[in-house]
Write a protein that binds this DNA or RNA. Structure first.
Lengths: 153, 153
DNA sequence: AATGAAAATGAAAATCAATATCATTTTACC
DNA sequence: GGTAAAATGATATTGATTTTCATTTTCATT
């Protein structure tokens, strides 16, 4: 099912600029990706896509994801001990990740003061800053309440 | 060559606690690792180790690195588009990484205010903070001077 | 609608880092 | 020295991702 959303337009513009073709398969994959819970792995997207496109291959999913990333619709995020996940990016503000080391819960956080300090720290070393990646690891409120056998970790 | 350093003692204590054996091969690998430039990949360590231990295998290097990490002597760091590198940890203070996106140069940085803010941000969300990972990406002073064809990236 | 060139696709093979298997060798202890 | 457990090295395996390549699809042009 096609949706006339702006993400699709971003993709179309990206393709047009490069004289690339549109394709039904890729657009279906994008639609599946956009509707899905955030932070899918390539394999999860592949599994979902196969419901609509039973013959789609891994390679096409990977190729599509690469294009989506190139046109700024998503971004790969690699957390520890996990396969790469892809995060929606378009019209989502920059944020960092707060990860629970017990249950894996992922919270998106943002602190402008932190952002400024990071920028400043880079500049202090003469760098022209482009971006950063911050992951905070800890135990989320729910897991803290539960306690558990590995409470001391 | 053996050195009576504390890192070796840390390893020996770790092994003793678990009733594991010492081994000449592993101690040589540790010595090579400690003397080397920081942030080696497993493969680089393997190449270096082979100079002293011509018959050593990849598996042993990986196994040794895992043990070194487990006993707190090093830590894997995974930067974007790079194989995992291992960073010396023992008696090294915590720091973040400032990475040049042009030449790959790696600078270790530290800012106590930043550290506090990160801690605080996690606590604000009810997390019991354990650690964090911050990577700052930008263009280093040298590469900025050089300019270059992809100056706008 | 038919054509043809370029792009996209899917299946399968290749790659690459990392891990597991297993027969052989070392270590620690008697 | 003998022995059981641990470590090793060679090799196979895994798992995610990329590449290859023959086939199909797209799209501008007839």
């Amino acid at each position: 099912m096609k949706t006339g959303n702006t993400e699709t337009e971003v993709l179309q513009k990206f393709l047009a600029d490069r004289r690339l073709n549109r394709s039904r398969v890729r657009e279906e994959i994008l639609d599946v990706f956009l509707r899905a819970e955030r932070h899918l792995t390539a394999d999860q997207l592949y599994q979902l896509a196969r419901r609509r496109l039973p013959s789609v291959g891994y390679a096409t999913v990977y190729r599509s994801l690469k294009i989506f990333c190139d046109c700024g619709l998503c971004r790969p995020i690699k957390l520890e001990n996990e396969p790469v996940r892809y995060e929606h990016l378009y019209r989502h503000d920059h944020h960092d990740h707060l990860v629970c080391t017990r249950c894996g819960r992922l919270v998106e956080v943002f602190d402008p003061t932190l952002e400024q300090l990071q920028e400043k720290l880079g500049r202090k070393h003469g760098f022209q800053m482009e971006r950063h990646r911050l992951e905070l690891y800890g135990i989320c409120p729910e897991c803290r309440k539960k306690g558990g056998p590995d409470d001391r970790n």
